[in-house]
Design a protein around this nucleic acid. Structure first.
Length: 878
RNA sequence: GCCGGCGUGGCGGAACUGGUAGACGCGGCGGACUCAAAAUCCGCAGCCUUCACGGGCGUGUGGGUUCGAUUCCCUCCGCCGGCACCA
């Protein structure tokens, strides 16, 4: 008879384990979050995705970062809100409708279903019962109600704005739809056109938006700087020139450098300025110039980079101080939206004015002494005023004040505060967006839709021709009755900017089915304190989305909602996921997994053909640079991908795609699994610890040190070093001989600790092995290992086996000996092993006595610097 | 163009508050196991120089502050994000 071979230890099969645990979490509502209870609240929010249909690695990164935090905070005893939803309105759905004849709604909802399926396989701890979808009336209806709230508060108004107009398709183009100055579909040159639009009065909050940045210590400084620059508060002089030559109105300009007023040698106005229009009315050449300028479109970048051009008008501006007459130009770089749409130009002290003056041979008059020859290059820094009778000899700041004071005293100008920020134009001439709930009545004017008639729903039977606004083209939708007089009237056919949708979603998550837009009790509970306790998303949203959301919160606060002053108490901006792309000779792209790299050159695995390696760039579907998350999930499982994401780069930095690095994460988890299978069979002993060998105490110390290190890394979002620390602990555990009973105890307890530390990053594998070790309370219900005596007692009473857990103890983590570095003149020459509490005198004495240093100190020591616990630096006598 | 950021071995990255540069991982090399390979395990390794001990150099470039600089300041170079209708 053969004796049966012992059953081989089960293999690590992530797919099975992960589905099983995801099902358990879901069935037990583990991540359901409701107000109340003893636990303090903690709101973890990640930027919601646009449902393109493809979950990409950028999403995976964003949501994994958030999930680690959410799971850690749960373990630390918080009532954690961690929701997810869909930013579901927007241009791509309409583009897809034109291209593939699908309806935006069907396309979008289908994409959401596909993405959600993949997302649920990552084991992210979302409370899916809070899910919101911005393109459904259950979301955009409440949004319309909030819009009316803000309207009643005076924060919504009608105005005019410039748009990119495609004259062939008779439609407004987004900046990204303008390619080389032409409409992307029609190829027709775009025109800048003025259109009536809806606006939000964000400028009314400019001061608060600026001042409250100081209340956000949890935000990256660079994001706050960007917002500050975007708001662009500046103090300056607004004054008017009398105009000669047949233009009646004065020309009002704004300048931040009133001290250079004597150096003004010409004026420039925006092409849309009334003075430019007056010039155009008299001269077809001026009209042609304005038309050409308007072909630049509305994008700031294009306007800034375009060649500076001007057109001389027949009007002259009379200088208020000198009485001199300055020529007035129409200039293609002057913006109608900043200041007054007109400026005084001082070529000696402004880069752009200088360039323009050189081009049109205009005089350059130096009025600030700076040492450089202003005929050769402009001097834009501060200095001392010259050639300026009122302020000669004054420094720039004093000169500015003096001019402003003089202008106010003499009545020709006034000091004003100007902002770069302009009001938020929210009108979009598109179908796939939230309808603006207003009605245009020929006799009553613009009338809000009554609240009981909300939501104003989008019609579904629309055509996408690429011409005009599908909503306006709809045969019947817009025709309605005026709510005020009952007469024939038309609905507003503009829809809202999708930034509106993403400006309040974090509030609707808290009460996704409330009849009122916001359930005040629930919103009050979750938004108390810091609001969203931690927000995580891409830096690309540093200005617009975050500024709009901040504005919304303040506006809603003023409408009586308990949302606080700031929505996001802390912000983490994650880097992008980037990768090389690989292009074959025929121009098609290969996935990284299809490519083999040898000696820095790439070859297609299947054919052996040489492949071109293109530079690192944002992962995108068209370039195939980076396999899709679902393919990788199938191969490695969620825990491996999560570990790869966390380990490969710090959260704030760009993460470079690497198949090899995923393999590394996979191997580590397999090693963790295998060790688990051996630890399972070790006896569980909870009694007092015997005396350790040197090696055993080192590892025991390491267990405590790792708890501390991982905890600090979690608090600081240093997830990459957190993983490294866990790997180090693992390496130390495997360095002990498990056959030795004392070592086995250290390994077993260390391994249990490692599972708990790894759990936020890799929840499935740790949960599974935890159960295999015989613990009855799931690891996701455990308290963190850095606990106070109360929680420790609670934990130990949960399961008699928890006597085996290791709780962090500072004393156990302490090293008895340290390595003291001895430097001579800053160079390391010796290392000494000394007691950790060595004193300064003793340390210096031992350093000087070290045999290695003597040759570097032929003339003795001039000075000794001691850094406690670290080093002694001996400075050699010359 | 304007605003903001990043730059460390062959590669991703680590380094507390100005104090041992290169932790951890990938790749590489050597070894064990195997008929062989894969997987796995053990070991080596910044570069130059040296038989070795050792020494020199080294954090994009050039300069500065300091006993000591990847870290602070200035210059330049390269790359990336945003610029108001992509989200």
């Amino acid at each position: 008879m053969n004796t049966p071979a012992p059953a081989p230890a089960p293999k690590y099969t992530p797919r099975e384990i992960e589905t099983q645990w995801q099902t358990k979490w879901f069935e037990k509502n583990v991540f359901l979050a409701e107000p109340g209870g003893d636990r303090p609240k903690y709101y973890v929010l990640e930027m919601l995705p646009y449902p393109s249909g493809q979950l990409h690695m950028g999403h995976v990164r964003n949501y994994t970062l958030g999930d680690v935090l959410a799971r850690y905070k749960r373990a630390r005893g918080f009532n954690v809100m961690h929701p997810m939803g869909w930013d579901a309105f927007g241009l791509p759905a309409e583009n897809a409708a034109m291209k593939r004849k699908t309806h935006p709604k069907a396309w979008t909802l289908n994409n959401i279903a596909e993405m959600k399926k993949v997302m649920q396989q990552f084991g992210w701890s979302y409370d899916w019962s809070k899910e919101v979808t911005s393109c459904l009336p259950s979301y955009y209806g409440p949004q319309q109600a909030l819009f009316l709230d803000m309207y009643e508060k005076g924060l919504v108004y009608r105005g005019e704005a410039l748009v990119n107009w495609d004259p062939v398709d008779q439609t407004v183009l987004a900046n990204e739809q303008v390619v080389d100055g032409k409409g992307w579909r029609s190829g027709a040159p775009v025109e800048r056109r003025k259109l009536p639009q809806w606006f939000m009065k964000i400028t009314q909050y400019a001061d608060q938006l600026l001042a409250d940045l100081d209340t956000l210590p949890g935000w990256p400084a660079r994001v706050k700087t960007m917002q500050e620059n975007w708001l662009g508060k500046s103090r300056g002089l607004e004054f008017s020139f009398k105009v000669t030559g047949g233009y009646e109105a004065p020309l009002t300009v704004f300048t931040t450098r009133p001290d250079t007023i004597y150096g003004a040698t010409f004026c420039a106005v925006a092409p849309e300025h009334p003075l430019a229009q007056a010039a155009a009315a008299r001269n077809p050449a001026a009209a042609a110039f304005i038309a050409a300028a308007s072909a630049l479109g509305t994008a700031q970048e294009i306007i800034d980079k375009a060649e500076k051009q001007g057109f001389l008008t027949p009007f002259k501006a009379v200088h208020p101080l000198t009485g001199g007459e300055l020529p007035i130009y129409i200039a293609n770089f002057v913006l109608m939206t900043y200041g007054t749409g007109a400026l005084m130009a001082v070529p000696a002290h402004d880069e752009r004015d200088y360039e323009f003056a050189k081009k049109y041979s205009l005089p350059i008059v130096e009025v600030v002494a700076g040492g450089t020859d202003v005929q050769e290059a402009p001097y834009a820094e501060a200095g001392v005023a010259i050639n300026s009778p009122l302020i000669d000899g004054l420094a720039t700041d004093a000169a500015k004040d003096t001019i402003i004071a003089a202008a106010e005293a003499q009545g020709w100008g006034r000091g004003v505060t100007n902002w770069r920020l302009r009001d938020w134009g929210i009108s979009r001439q598109r179908y796939w967006g939230c309808p603006i709930p207003f009605i245009h009545c020929p006799s009553c004017g613009v009338v809000p839709v009554p609240r009981e008639a909300l939501p104003v729903q989008l019609p579904e039977d629309v055509e996408f021709t690429g011409s005009g606004n599908p909503l306006a083209n709809h045969p019947t939708w817009k025709h309605t009755r005026c709510p005020s007089c009952g007469g024939q009237a038309e609905r507003e056919t503009d829809t809202m900017d999708t930034f509106m949708d993403s400006s309040w979603y974090y509030l609707r998550y808290l009460c996704p089915t409330a009849a009122d837009p916001l359930d005040k009790a629930k919103v009050g509970y979750w938004m108390a304190g810091k609001g969203v306790d931690q927000y995580i998303g891409g830096v690309e949203h540093a200005v617009l989305h975050l500024l709009y959301a901040r504005f919304f919160t303040k506006a809603l606060r003023d409408c009586g909602y308990p949302v606080g002053n700031e929505p996001f108490g802390a912000l983490l901006t994650q880097g992008m996921v980037v990768g090389n792309s690989y292009q074959k000779a025929d121009g098609t792209y290969l996935y990284p997994s299809q490519v083999e790299i040898k000696d820095g050159k790439a070859f297609e695995k299947a054919t052996g053909d040489a492949v071109t390696i293109l530079p690192v760039e944002k992962i995108s579907k068209s370039k195939n640079n980076g396999d899709s998350p679902d393919a990788l999930l199938a191969r490695y499982g969620a825990d491996t991908l999560r570990l790869f994401i966390l380990f490969t780069a710090p959260p704030e930095r760009d993460l470079e795609w690497s198949e090899a690095a995923i393999e590394g994460a996979w191997r580590f988890l397999n090693r963790v699994w295998s060790l688990g299978q051996r630890v399972k069979d070790l006896p569980s002993i909870t009694g007092p610890m015997p005396n350790y060998s040197k090696e055993q105490s080192r590892v025991w110390r390491k267990i405590h040190q790792t708890i501390d290190k991982v905890t600090r890394d979690l608090e600081n979002f240093q997830y990459n070093t957190m993983v490294a620390a866990i790997m180090e602990l693992f390496n130390d555990l495997t360095s002990l001989d498990i056959e030795d009973p004392v070592s086995a105890r250290v390994v077993r307890r260390g391994y249990i600790t490692l599972l708990q530390l790894l759990n936020p990053a890799c929840p499935h594998i740790t949960e599974e092995i935890w159960e295999q070790l015989g613990f009855r309370v799931p690891i996701s219900n455990m308290y963190w290992l850095q606990v106070n005596s109360t929680t420790r007692k609670i934990v130990e009473e949960m399961d008699e086996r928890f006597g085996e857990l290791v709780f962090y103890d500072e004393n156990e983590a302490k090293e008895e000996e340290i390595t003291l570095v001895v430097q001579v003149n800053g160079k390391v020459r010796a290392k000494l092993v000394v007691p950790h509490d060595i004193g300064q005198a003793e340390a210096i004495a031992q350093a000087q006595a070290a045999p290695e240093v003597a040759t570097w100190l032929p003339n003795g020591v001039a000075k000794a610097v001691y850094v406690p616990g670290r080093l002694v630096n001996l400075v050699a006598q010359a």
